[in-house]
């Protein structure tokens, strides 16, 4: 059997005496979409930060593409093919949309001409090919989220980590974005997807990992997760678990 694309084994992250993530293990196969859900403060973003090298993990290991990437700097992680987006968007505010995406594209090419081509292609995929010259900082949140996705894709990733990419978007925008993510998977990129919108997660994901208070509460197919009493309890409170 082939090794999974991303494998996390007993990962923990403590801030002082506070365990933001403790002993979490899961793996992501190639070309899969894995949903990472959990109540606020359950450690989802911290987990992303540990996987991508923004926080050093307190213990445990992260394997990506058969390499131990634990403790590796974020830029190296990206160049190996694992790229993330941000819950609070981080556009390169003073640059144009095209320049933002080109910056991502320079991860895989030295040539400005080639980077421009890749950027245009990604902007077309994301449906922003008509606004390439606008300044990124001036965009509404929906476009900023899309821009960040395009910029991440321009790096040519094998695995995309999306942190609440649908947060703050309306229904139509969310539907559009879910279609785009499905398209990304079709082209061979695996996705790990932090999301609060359960409907979106269950429709899109092949597998779901549930975190609660930094620990893994459950993992399985969407149908298993939605009928898991512990998950229902975590989300809705114990009173609803027998309903």
């Amino acid at each position: 059997m082939m090794a999974p694309l991303l494998e996390i084994t007993s990962l923990s992250k403590h801030f002082g005496g506070n365990a933001a993530v403790s002993d979490v293990s899961f793996s992501v196969e190639e070309q899969r979409i894995v949903g990472l859900i959990g109540p606020n403060g359950s450690g989802k973003t911290t987990l992303f930060n540990c996987i991508t090298g923004y926080y050093p993990a307190s213990s445990g290991r992260v394997w990506f593409s058969g390499r131990d990437v634990t403790g590796m700097k974020p830029d190296r992680v990206c160049r190996l093919g694992m790229v993330r987006t941000w819950q609070r968007v981080k556009p390169l505010a003073g640059l144009s949309i095209l320049e933002n995406v080109m910056t991502g594209a320079f991860c895989r090419t030295r040539s400005a001409t080639e980077a421009r081509m890749i950027a245009h292609e990604q902007l077309r995929v994301i449906g922003m090919e008509n606004v390439t010259q606008k300044t990124a900082g001036d965009l509404p949140i929906g476009l900023k989220k899309k821009l960040e996705l395009a910029r991440a894709l321009a790096t040519g990733p094998k695995l995309l980590l999306l942190d609440e990419v649908c947060g703050g978007l309306n229904n139509t925008e969310t539907q559009e974005l879910l279609e785009i993510i499905r398209g990304i998977r079709e082209k061979g990129t695996a996705v790990v997807f932090i999301e609060h919108d359960m409907k979106a997660v269950t429709r899109l994901c092949d597998r779901i990992v549930v975190l609660k208070s930094g620990k893994k509460l459950a993992e399985g197919l969407p149908s298993e997760i939605t009928s898991n009493p512990a998950v229902i309890a975590a989300y809705l409170g114990t009173g609803y678990s027998h309903a």
Partner: peptide, 9 residues
């Protein structure tokens, strides 16, 4: 942070 996430050393 954004720069590092795009592979920039």
């Amino acid at each position: 942070d954004a720069a590092a996430s795009l592979g920039i050393n």
